[in-house]
């Protein structure tokens, strides 16, 4: 039950933060990425504001355990691989095209209209076929 409570409240705080910060407005996100246009630095302030409590939280995890028990997630061992690089590049292109990434796309679902729904549906489809793409890429890498 406790775990479910943390999930619901974290999701709600996340959605609220995205709405207040203006990150559900695709113009502000594209404005940040459009460095040769009328640059909008808001996203940098959002990231800065988010990193402070999150960095404090990581510090606090040392020598402790999550409230629901178990262990905190370890730092991933494989530092950089091809999937991380290729995936991040593809993500960045899509992010710039629409001005939406997964969090804000979902937070704006109730007021984003047909465009928002279309984006989320396409995103879900992309996520659905991602494991197959990963398999193909890994096979090709193993052959090479």
């Amino acid at each position: 039950m406790l775990r479910f409570g943390f999930s619901l409240i974290s999701g709600a705080l996340f959605g609220l933060g995205l709405l207040i910060s203006g990150m559900t407005d695709t113009k502000k996100v594209q404005g940040f990425l459009d460095i040769l246009g009328a640059w909008d630095p808001t996203l940098a302030f959002v990231m800065g504001g988010a990193l402070v409590p999150m960095a404090l939280a990581w510090r606090w995890t040392r020598g402790r355990a999550p409230l629901v028990g178990g262990a905190f997630p370890a730092l991933p061992a494989a530092p950089l691989d091809r999937n991380l690089i290729l995936g991040s590049l593809l993500f960045g292109i899509g992010w710039a095209l629409a001005g939406l990434c997964p969090g804000p796309a979902l937070a704006s679902l109730s007021f984003g209209g047909a465009q928002g729904l279309l984006f989320v549906a396409a995103m879900a489809l992309g996520m659905r076929i991602a494991p197959a793409l990963r398999l193909v890429l890994d096979r090709r890498a193993a052959k090479a």
Binding site: A50, P53, A57
Partner: peptide, 17 residues
């Protein structure tokens, strides 16, 4: 808003791990 997002992530980490 960013601070709220950070608090959401902090709660999810410290609470749910």
């Amino acid at each position: 808003g960013g601070a709220l997002i950070g608090c959401a992530g902090a709660l999810y980490l410290l609470g749910a791990g």
